[in-house]
């Protein structure tokens, strides 16, 4: 199976290349782009951008697996990431993770059978003053309660 950026993606990639003095610096932005275009970072996508940047695929894999935001496996349409660090825990994050688990019928790390939701526990999201917090895809939802979680998730198409 081979992959390739869309025309827009390709254009964005070219723009990135021009922004940095060394092409390896494009690896992180390129992996963000891969994830935006394909939903996750597949082996094929790694080989693809390794080719575009003329680096070894292992080098891209080393980078992709170092950073937590790159999903090396497919995730649900909505990636629900709940902070479990201290400020959020003091404000009830454990309880809310339990709530999410029951609501979605999955444990953290799992994806619903319909592929709609993946639930993850993550480390500090830098939103400690508005804890507890979760990120659904790119968007932050702060000062969470069971009710606000229900409202957010139930409102997703």
């Amino acid at each position: 199976m081979s992959v390739a950026f869309s025309d827009a993606g390709r254009k964005e990639f070219e723009r990135l290349l021009a922004r940095y003095p060394e092409k390896e610096a494009v690896i992180l932005p390129a992996l963000h782009l891969v994830q935006k275009e394909f939903g996750y970072v597949s082996d094929e996508a790694i080989v693809y951008i390794a080719g575009l940047l003329s680096v070894a695929p292992a080098q891209i894999e080393g980078v992709a697996t170092f950073y937590t935001m790159y999903n090396r496996k497919p995730v649900g349409k909505y990636h629900v990431q709940v902070c479990r660090n201290l400020s959020c825990s003091l404000m009830g994050a454990e309880h809310l993770i339990g709530h999410l688990s029951r609501k979605l019928g999955i444990e953290p790390g799992e994806t619903t059978p319909d592929g709609k939701f993946t639930l993850s526990e993550v480390e500090c999201l830098g939103s400690c003053g508005t804890a507890p917090v979760m990120q659904v895809n790119d968007e932050y939802h702060e000062n969470l309660t069971e009710e606000s979680i229900d409202a957010v998730l139930d409102g997703l198409p």
């Binding site: 082996d43 080989v47 070894a56 292992a58 080098q59 891209i60 894999e61 080393g62 697996t65 170092f66």
Partner: peptide
Amino acid sequence: RELQFFRRGDHSEISVF
């Protein structure tokens, strides 16, 4: 560059792609 570090922390390992 066939061998690289993958993952991090105490799950770090070296391997090939």
